[in-house]
Design a binder for these strands. Structure first.
Length: 822
RNA sequence: GCGCGCGUGGCGGAAUUGGUAGACGCGCUAGAUUCAGGUUCUAGUGGGGGCAACCCUGUGCUGGUUCAACUCCAGUCGCGCGCACCA
């Protein structure tokens, strides 16, 4: 019986161990990447946090995964870049200012200081020299330079259009930032508003953004790829002109002679019985402005135009005849024009041809208003029939298949100069203006004489004024007495500075390049091309699925833009993506409002960082949701205590040479388990990320070691287990590695010794007709014939009155005897 | 409606990718240690049956392929996520 009188000193003391190693790592600058770019690199990146004040469990999970990978590759002698920074601009800082009267800047930087400490108590191996906050003036400086370059390259423009306005956030939102008609941040319904703003032409890159998803196949989650494809929404078809009749042209004051419509089904063009315009369409506007509609109709159309897209999507089909007609480009028929609430203003020109026989929406609308329905595709019992088939009543195209007639109809219209093959995207250009204070100023100036002028690059950064009053009313930059007054960069006369700030997604679109740039060069340039080419793409990116569209699409887009600017030579920023699941408690997302949070600080105070990290990686595979479980945390703590308590078992300070054949069978078993865990390690760290199974294998190995007492086997076991657990529970692993092996076990590349898997006897399952009946122990080199003899004997009980018709031996696994009654 | 994914003990989850289902952990049961609680240790733990060796049954459901299916195929039900009048 061991004496445990001085157990307190002997026992596992996470606080002391963790503090000690965190200090050592800091003084050793253990996590800084090397400047030597001839070394093989790994860039491991967890999405950077918004400095909200405190870490939550989602952060802990995110960084525990990234840290495990970074530490693994560092040990494998890769040059590892594992940076952290702060996504520091954004609304919550202003909300805190309104609520608590704290200046956003002060609030943000003090949050960063606190959270940086939290990260270090968790022992994450981040590079310290590359840390930055996106609200740092130096970061804005380069971002503003990129924005100006985009403007010069014709990729960025200012335009007044209908935008999504969120009243509580007091700003416009990009399309991606509207979820089911509501603001992604505050979930209130967005309003449509006409106002000027800055846009980046992301649609120009739509094809590349779509096509390059193929390169990511198998490396990004399928779901994310599908969401991106869906969002880009490429569709090919026909765009053609609907010529207005002479009478209609006259009615429209000669202002319009035709309008464009888009269809993906040119094969149904002979089935057109009406055409429909969005309520916002210029022709409808003209009719309203010139009182060419009766009062009731006009009112109804205005009501539709003022309702949100979301409301319209839920409303019944509704529309009004406009009293004008167009001419069918192929048949010359007169087609009535309607306005309809289901036609989207923002897609395909805001106008459609309507083929009620072959489109559900058109059908429903036609039914409601008694419009004619003309079938032109054979197939299906009932209308609408939206499938493909043989064309009828389609003039010269009769009898041909939809599939091969599409191209012909497009060509036909092209020849008549009435239409052309076109590609449309659901993706819209990225609106980057925000009418808020706490963001990077958009570096433009409005000059009465020169118009819109970009700021001179040498004047960058344009920094925010600090003496502002944040009340939640209006834009503080707009309201500031002097800030917006400036000199025109072009003519030098008095001008007005732009008061919109950049969408915060702009900052997170290029931060991966900033980390890669040697900090010594941060003053000189935003991105160093050689550094970027060396470090990027990020080998493994880790973050929440909630960024599947927004951030990941923007960052991919920026990468391509920066490439075209000559900042780097890569096409895709993130080679592999891991989307972690949420951390739940009581089956609900942890949140302050639900009161179901578990505070990382409290957990660390109670059990230590290693337990927190171990639990979070053990409880579920990283991609899945993780249900918090206090007693399972205890279990993780118990494992670490057990590991620690076994340190005296290892008596040799190097990896011992062991003669496997002389060992007892529990010792052999223990070695096999240890090496199984080692085998698993590389697969887990490099491929599957199923840390839960690696931890399970390590637990099995420790349990097996504990069932034997050979100190060499113990030494070898600890040597290996501490190595493979170090990325997960670094403090206790390093502590034990230091005291047992002078940390030599942490730098070595460990070899798998195949001989430990060779067993004296192996167990084969005996199955009869695929059903397991019994098992046999045999020597591994027993010939097949002999195995069958033993197997038949072992199974004889179940084979009575049967005749064997087939025998299958799966080496090392089982014997299956296939038998039939005689 | 369309797209993607998932259904395995009381719970979290394993299963070398077609070869002994339920590893590992939590929980639970019994026992040991303890004045007691906690800790720790030992044994057991999918369901049903049997004194027992054992037997039956079992991966949402129904079929199929195969010597062999949690794994592959078809259908079906349920759940989750995303998109949603995109012409």
């Amino acid at each position: 019986m061991p004496i445990i009188a001085y157990g307190e000193e002997m026992g596992y003391n996470p606080k002391e161990i963790e503090k000690k190693w965190q200090a050592i790592w800091e003084s050793e600058e253990a996590f800084e990447p090397s400047d030597d770019q001839s070394k093989e690199k790994k860039y491991i990146l967890s999405m950077f946090p918004f400095p909200s004040g405190r870490l939550h469990m989602g952060h802990v999970r995110n960084y525990a995964i990234g840290d495990a990978l970074a530490r693994y590759y560092r040990k494998r002698n890769f040059n590892v870049l594992h940076p952290i920074g702060w996504d520091a601009f954004g609304m919550p800082a202003e909300n805190a200012a309104i609520k608590h009267g704290r200046h956003p800047k002060e609030w943000t930087y003090s949050n960063i200081d606190y959270m940086r400490k939290e990260l270090s108590t968790l022992g994450f191996s981040f590079s310290k020299t590359r840390e930055f906050a996106t609200c740092d003036a130096l970061y804005s400086r380069w971002e503003q330079a990129f924005i100006i370059k985009m403007y010069e390259d014709g990729l960025l423009y200012r335009e007044s259009t209908t935008v999504n306005w969120c009243e509580p956030c007091h700003t416009v939102l990009a399309n991606e930032q509207v979820e089911e008609g509501c603001c992604w941040r505050c979930t209130t319904e967005v309003q449509l508003r006409e106002m000027p703003g800055y846009y980046i032409d992301i649609v120009k890159y739509a094809d590349e953004l779509l096509d390059d998803l193929e390169q990511l196949e198998g490396k990004w989650p399928q779901q994310v790829l599908a969401m991106q494809r869906n969002w880009i929404g490429k569709s090919q078809g026909l765009e053609f002109r609907f010529e207005l009749t002479k009478e209609s042209q006259v009615k429209l004051g000669g202002k319009f002679d035709a309008y464009q419509v888009f269809t993906t089904r040119p094969d149904t063009i002979y089935g057109v019985t009406y055409s429909a315009l969005a309520a916002e369409h210029p022709i409808v506007k003209y009719l309203l402005d010139h009182n060419l509609l009766d009062e009731q109709t006009a009112e109804a159309i205005i009501r539709i135009a003022n309702s949100s897209e979301r409301d319209r999507a839920q409303a019944e089909k509704e529309g009004y005849a406009l009293g004008i007609d167009v001419i069918h480009p192929l048949t010359g028929e007169i087609i009535p024009v309607w306005t309809a609430n289901f036609v989207l203003a923002s897609y395909g020109g805001g106008a459609v041809m309507a083929v009620p026989a072959h489109d559900e929406r058109d059908f429903e609308f036609a039914g409601r208003y008694g419009l004619p329905i003309k079938r032109v595709i054979e197939g299906g019992e009932r209308l609408p029939y939206v499938g493909t088939g043989v064309l009828v009543e389609s003039g010269e195209f009769n009898g041909r298949e939809s599939g091969d007639v599409k191209e012909a109809i497009i060509n036909h219209l092209e020849e008549k100069s009435a239409g052309k093959g076109t590609t449309n995207y659901k993706l819209r250009n990225w609106g980057i203006s925000r009418q808020r204070y706490w963001g990077a100023p958009i570096p433009f100036v409005h000059c009465e004489a020169c118009g819109l002028v970009p700021e001179k690059v040498e004047n960058l950064p344009i920094v925010l004024p600090e003496d502002v009053e944040i009340t939640g009313e209006g834009n503080p930059l707009e309201n500031h007495p002097t800030w917006k007054r400036c000199a025109c960069p072009q003519c030098g006369k008095e001008a007005i500075r732009e008061t919109d700030t950049l969408d915060t997604f702009v900052q997170s679109s290029w931060y991966q390049f900033r980390y890669a740039t040697d900090p010594k060069k941060w003053d000189e340039r935003g991105i160093d091309r050689d550094d970027a080419n060396y470090w990027l793409p990020v080998d493994q990116y880790i973050g929440g699925i909630e960024h599947a569209i927004l951030h990941l699409l923007y960052a991919r887009f920026f990468t391509k833009v920066l490439r075209d600017m000559g900042q780097c030579d890569i096409d895709e920023p993130f080679e592999r993506l891991l989307t972690q699941g949420m951390v739940l408690k009581d089956s609900a997302k942890m949140s302050k409002s639900k009161g179901n949070t578990v505070d990382p600080d409290g957990l660390i105070a109670q059990y230590g960082a290693d337990t927190a990290r171990l639990f979070i990686l053990f409880a579920a595979p990283p991609q899945k949701e993780l249900e918090w479980n206090d007693s399972a945390v205890e279990g993780a703590f118990r494992f670490i205590k057990k590991l620690y308590s076994k340190k005296e078992k290892a008596t040799e300070r190097v990896l011992p040479e062991i003669d496997h054949s002389t060992l007892s069978s529990p010792a052999k078993e223990a070695r096999a388990k240890v090496y199984e865990a080692l085998k698993k390690a590389s697969e887990v760290y490099e491929k599957s990320f199923a840390f839960n199974t690696l931890i399970a294998a390590s637990m099995e190995a420790l349990n097996a070691l504990d069932k034997q007492d050979n100190s060499s086997v113990w030494s070898e076991g600890m040597y290996i287990l501490l190595n493979l657990l170090e990325p997960i529970i670094p403090h206790v692993s390093t502590e034990l590695s230091e005291s047992l092996f002078d940390r030599k076990n942490l730098s070595a590349t460990l070899k798998i010794k195949e001989e430990v898997f060779v067993q004296d006897t192996i167990t084969l399952a005996i199955t009869i007709n695929g059903k397991k009946r019994t098992q046999i122990d045999i020597s591994p080199d027993t010939p097949k014939e002999e195995i069958l003899v033993i197997a038949r004997e072992a199974g004889s009980k179940w084979l009575e009155g049967m005749s064997i018709i087939k025998e299958i031996v799966v080496p090392g696994k089982l014997v299956n005897l296939v038998a039939k009654p005689i």
